[in-house]
Amino acid sequence: MTVPAINVEGLRFSYGDLEAVKGISFDVQPGEILGFLGPNGAGKSTTIKMLTGQITPKGGKAQVLGIDISADDADLQAQIGVCFEEKNLYLNMSAKENLDFYASLFGIKEPETMEILRRVGLAERAKDRVHTFSKGMRQRMMISRAFVNKPKVLFLDEPTDGLDPVTSASIRKTIREEADRGAAVLLTTHDMFEADELSDRIAFLNDGEIVAIDTAENLKLKYGTRSVKVRLRDGAGVREEHIELASDGSSARLAELAASPDLLTIHTEEATLEKIFIELTGRGLAG
């Protein structure tokens, strides 16, 4: 078995009395994308901050590339890439200068800056100062900066937060390319579609705890219930009926409704990750 790129056991953190991360365990393999899905305040960013050495865990153990994270090891830092939640770019410097500077901190003599900017669609703006960039362009800068050192492990905190669908899709494509290159990716999001589309496995994080961790497929099979929504004419209005497919008498009831003269439409309802999340935690992903 290969050494996991990220290996976490019982990791904990608290801000004063507030327990933000309550002893979580998981691992991420090289080339794998693990999606951390949870609402705001679940502890996603706190976990990334611990794993990237920004804050010191209050308990538990974690290794990245087999190196203990408490070691503050420059060799480890040379091999990780981080996309922060805040867009902490040097606004007075151009896109190219930002990436060149960052590359120089890794001792990279000839950074492939233009190539990286091309991948995120910013090559034409390379010489423009970042303060002239839109929110989406800055976010693309954030992602590209995380790629500068060709990291073996990528920590991406809400990389597509607040972006339009087209930009989001292009950023997801580049993240997938990084994983295909062999990078382990820990990605946080509160967007279930993103988690579903991009992640090899998904960890549901709620209130500092991992409530479930598996592939999207398995999560849906394990927790989700398949159901059908039937819409019928009801006098002047419309009536809806939900039928859970696995429940008793569901097929008889469905056949009965299907034969009804009032039938308007039948929709299959696949369990979404959000529904499963609600089922497991009693709360949604928003807010």
Partner: peptide, 14 residues
């Protein structure tokens, strides 16, 4: 305040 320092400190820079 702009937190660029955190971006510097996750690299080999101390």
């Amino acid at each position: 305040l702009q937190r660029t320092v955190t971006a510097v400190l996750v690299t080999p820079a101390k």
